[in-house]
Design a protein around this nucleic acid. Structure first.
Lengths: 345, 345
DNA sequence: TTGTAAGCGTTATCAA
DNA sequence: TTGATAACGCTTACAA
């Protein structure tokens, strides 16, 4: 493990000359010394010590990617959304010559501790709540960027999507297909203002505008075990079917919920889309190969990650750069899981 | 950003006393000084600088997770296998009080550079080829653990699964269902010895034992664009159907290929399992909610990751510990995508 | 263009 | 039990 000092000795130059060569500051070194040093570097396969650099330069070239985990949940990367987002960030970071640390935390203290102990140069967050964000911004003086967070505060750098429009598009699609009794399924969240609420808001307001109301009994918030929750919904659906007070279509705020729901119905003899229509959210890779193809609200996860990183690196490059936020569009992708309502009961 | 030195000054003790308190070496510090120092640490929310520690102690507490990427491919975490493996490793590492760096590389040089520049304490690799592994072990003196690598060399620490048995189980299942003309679909690999070959080997030898041969024309190795490759296979299948020389069942070495294949057949009017049987590999989360439920060779990704980390940390804890390898079992999970062959043509 | 010196925040070592 | 001192490998700032 050769060091700058040793290279300097072998080359008969000062350590700084070598340092400049290593860091590509060629304007500061004469051609001949440069070439000579290159040779020695090559010969010994010199690799810089980044801890030392981080310490001396007060910049680590590490980008942190922080996921908020509800402790109970294990393996946040099991979620395709998180995995694709993190994977895109990793590639981006790496391409910029930075390093990528991934971390799941259960709160803002843990996140701050992580960022500070490694002297991280910037960080991107997935799914932080407003209170955490405020604290994180107060506790850290480095560029931070948040995603999918809802706040009233304009000063918070956030890259999100138009969740409300997503809810609207879903409702419009179902209304267009003649459905009048609709259901809504989402993961439970603790936050008052969250993307789930926005989606619900858009969904509900579109129904209202059509003179329909979304019944409280048709709104399901899934807690600990989504699979069990979905099964319960399907069971309840069946047992209510005779009462004629049952949705003919469901909007779920995640494709995975939609897959489970369609499957649960299938196992109970209810076919999608003949008997029930289902819309998902995200447009995951499997949405198109699922049978039936899943109608869903599509968002561009990779683009979101890239935009977040663009904004982050702009601020890393220029700390005086303004705080940036963006709201990306969502679109309806109609496949086969939604169909015209047939009145045959 | 308070430092040990500043805390020492405020407490009127030496820097080393504070350091010992921070590192829990309480046997070296008197109770009263300890308590006093704790207070100051709390008051200023002291957070250790890990770059400095890494430099001084020559141990970074970083664990690297290295993915081999075929440069062209982007976002390796899109693959559920990689994501789940990496996610499990992340949780494990974190639980041990270590930090997690994730990195995709295109070769051993890049990997070594990464490991050395951060002075990584240990690393786990996904999908390295034999030649890379040999070089990595030569170039790095830290504990490394490989997964799913095939080598003749016993000295290589590898955690894998019984891929050959996987192939055998798939073949047996299809034979049991009366199929006599079988197909095989996998991703192309450059390596001579790889898990794909093992699966093919187990598959083929089981057919041979039953007096059947796996025709070369029925073996498909997918290159750049799997989706397109799958479509081509389905098209070819259809156009060969009249010649009566077409598989009645396919074994694909990845669930995602199986999903695509089933979908491609579906779009062409060929139904699974009525017209064709399909077996996948991995037992991804969506295998059970797909319609039809996917018959597949199941492996325990999380367990594999945990075993790899157990072995890694044993060697980090004791560098003299022996090199460990393991081969985990696989099982057949029969769902709905395989059925008895019906002779109606 | 090159070199010198100080310092980044920590740990290891040894002496008190 | 405590403390002084020398590293660790590098960058910044400045002098030559």
């Amino acid at each position: 493990m050769i060091t700058l000092k040793e290279i300097a000795e072998e080359a008969g130059v000062s350590l700084m000359t070598v340092s400049n060569v290593v860091n590509g500051k060629i304007s500061k070194v004469s051609r001949e010394k440069r070439e000579q040093i290159y040779k020695i570097i090559k010969k010994y396969e010199y690799i810089p010590n980044y801890s030392a650099r981080s310490l001396a330069a007060n910049s680590s070239r590490i980008i942190g990617c922080v996921l908020l985990g509800n402790q109970s949940e294990s393996n946040l990367l099991m979620d395709e959304y998180n995995a694709r987002f993190a994977g895109t960030v990793m590639d981006y970071v790496h391409q910029q010559g930075y390093y990528f640390m991934l971390r799941s935390v259960s709160g803002h203290r843990e996140a701050t501790e992580f960022l500070r102990s490694w002297n991280v140069d910037g960080a991107v967050f997935i799914g932080m709540s407003y209170t955490y964000i405020k604290r994180l911004l107060k506790e850290n003086r480095i560029p931070l960027i948040f995603t999918d967070s809802y706040t009233e505060d304009q000063e918070i750098p956030n890259i999100g999507i138009d969740d409300r429009k997503g809810g609207r598009l879903a409702a419009e699609c179902l209304l267009r297909h003649g459905h009048r009794s609709l259901g809504f399924i989402c993961y439970a969240t603790k936050d008052e203002i969250s993307l789930m609420h926005q989606r619900l808001l858009g969904y509900r307001e579109t129904l209202s505008a059509a003179g329909l109301i979304l019944k409280e009994a048709h709104i399901h918030r899934l807690n600990t075990d989504p699979a069990r929750g979905i099964a319960a919904i399907a069971d309840a659906h069946i047992s209510s079917i005779t009462r004629n007070d049952v949705p003919t279509a469901y909007f779920t705020t995640a494709d995975r919920l939609a897959f489970s729901l369609i499957r649960a119905f299938y196992e109970r003899g209810i076919m999608t889309p003949q008997d029930i229509s289902v819309i998902g959210f995200d447009n995951l890779t499997s949405a198109s190969c699922f049978i039936p193809g899943l109608t869903t609200i599509a968002q561009d996860i990779e683009q979101k990650a890239k935009m977040a990183m663009d904004a982050l690196f702009r601020r890393i490059g220029d700390p005086a750069a303004p705080v940036e936020s963006a709201m990306l569009d969502v679109t309806l992708v109609e496949r086969e899981s939604t169909a015209m309502l047939v009145m045959d009961r």
